[in-house]
Design a protein around this nucleic acid. Structure first.
Lengths: 319, 319
DNA sequence: GCGCTCCATACGCCTAGAGATATCAAGCGG
DNA sequence: CCGCTTGATATCTCTAGGCGTATGGAGCGC
């Protein structure tokens, strides 16, 4: 990439003069006096090495060399204005791309509303949404494959990630409709002690898995896991087919599946949380925007990175 | 067309740094010290209003805004370097477009050699050649439809055009093979006094036409014109079919047509000239190049236009 | 010939910005 | 904890270039 030593001011003057073909008018459009314009053009011609205009007695004309340079100058100016505008839009978070990972169970609850409000506020922003369970989201956040995670029960030992709970919900028992316990409105956990369980594998989301087994332990038993499935949809289907019962966050009630009943757990104190996750100190303004959209106040955030002086330079830099 | 206030030096620094992602290396490539590079980038970021790079502790990365600006900056620089090179090539006459008008009778004589040598010397130059008779060439030169004319016997009263004879040739009589005069090797003009003539119309080329009728007058007769035709090809065809005889420049011998004979004129003093024509003071260097190719020495030319000071600015301007 | 239009030239002023050197600060590895 | 690497800051210098006003000079119309 070479560097042509052509000040943009001169190119601008050149383009305007090429349109006006009249030094006086062009100077007026450029809001300068006429002699400076003559100088601009002359300097440009000196740099090019050849005249760009024929100064006829009564009219100014482009030379062939000028005609050759004109489209390039136009394109360059247009590219730069457009690029500058785009960069500013992206920099201010009015445009760009945000990659979001989300747990499948949220596709029917928090996700749609979030997308809707965000799109309304930032129509120029492209949202890439990827369904993934908790553990892959953590990994994807670390290697910057996604910028935002929507997940359940994040691990507590993450130092470079931050989490904010956006929703807390109770657990429900997932039973086949034919199951005797589905007759009542609620189920005591201990009543499931002898039933086989269908659960997500622990690797998909260790914290949630541990929470479920912990609940069972509190109720005095250790769940016998008959089958693993990586999606709640599948869990419900397996429950319906009689493979076992399950414990799940209440929002999976949105999975309407004939032959499956959801029953509140007794006691109802145990709750599971849905959190947004992001990289601590992520400079991408879209991350902040999305956090704001889910109700997180960015002011609670410490500056994290670059605390020395110019931590936040998005607004006009102070010296 | 707006003017983005982005000095090209900064954009260049930006592009190089975006490629190197390392201030030291980028500065080395730009052949400056590292601190000035930091300043360039900073100034650019100030103008954009947002950071373009994330200065990580061990690595430099483009921000989304920087990624947005980068292609625009690249394109602008590439456009300008290319446009500048093209403008210089055109300005110096190494490239561009030259529009040439030529008389049909020259397509077989001077034109091919001229095109060949010119193309060899200036392969980047595109030649537009248009067949036209003398009068249209004069008109086309005036309204700048063509830059160069190749014509016969230009009018003498042209002030804004200049001519240079490149070829002088005698006249020949054009006769049907069956004509009694085609038996001899030469023909005296007076022998054609009673024959009907086929000629080009006077409007196509007044001087040549007048020259021919003048020759006849000198031989003691006024030619009886039986038929006009706008091309020599057609003239020959009409002569062959017995409509009449004709007088033509010798180079139409190249038109090989059975049944037509060409005979030298007695006395052979009368000659007709082929000339190049161009606009006086035409700045297009290709015109000068072509004139040189046909043997015209540009030094014989007075500066013509812009005699005040900077008449020839193609070389570095003197102040 | 006179004045008008239009572009070029001549000066003078002033600022942005590009460059260098010297120094500081943060992160990382031994 | 020290030292290396890497980028930021501070300060100074210098000049290209941008602008203005004043003036010159060529062509054209009346």
């Amino acid at each position: 990439m070479e560097r042509p030593e052509l000040p943009l001011a001169q190119l601008h003057a050149f383009v305007v003069l090429a349109e006006e073909l009249h030094f006086g008018h062009a100077a007026a459009r450029l809001d300068i006096a006429q002699p400076p314009l003559s100088q601009q053009i002359r300097r440009l011609e000196d740099k090019v090495g050849h005249p760009l205009f024929d100064r006829g007695p009564r009219r100014v004309t482009l030379t062939p060399a000028g005609r050759e340079l004109l489209p390039a100058a136009r394109r360059a100016l247009a590219d730069l204005t457009a690029g500058l505008a785009a960069a500013r839009a992206v920099g201010s978070g009015e445009a760009g791309r945000l990659r979001i990972g989300f747990a499948a169970s949220l596709a029917l609850t928090v996700l749609p509303g979030l997308l809707r409000t965000f799109r309304q506020r930032f129509p120029e922003v492209h949202l890439d949404i990827h369904e993934m369970t908790t553990a892959p989201q953590i990994a994807a956040l670390h290697d910057e494959t996604i910028d935002i995670g929507l997940l359940r029960e994040p691990p507590a030992d993450e130092t470079e990630l931050r989490f904010e709970t956006v929703l807390s919900e109770p657990f429900v028992a997932v039973l086949p409709s034919a199951h005797p316990l589905s007759a009542g409105r609620t189920v005591r956990l201990s009543q499931l002690a002898d039933s086989p369980f269908v659960l997500l594998p622990r690797e998909a989301g260790p914290r949630l898995h541990d929470q479920i087994t912990g609940l069972c332990a509190a109720a005095g038993f250790s769940p016998r896991i008959a089958q693993h499935a990586v999606e709640w949809q599948t869990v419900c289907a397996l429950v319906r087919s009689g493979l076992g019962v399950s414990l799940a966050p209440a929002s999976i009630r949105h999975i309407r599946l004939k032959g499956v009943a959801f029953r509140r757990i007794e006691p109802g104190t145990a709750r599971t949380g849905v959190a947004v996750a992001w990289r601590e100190g992520d400079q991408n303004p879209l991350v902040a925007h999305l956090l704001a959209a889910v109700g997180h106040d960015p002011a609670e955030e410490p500056p994290a990175r670059r605390p020395s002086g110019r931590a936040s330079r998005c607004s006009p830099r102070s010296r």
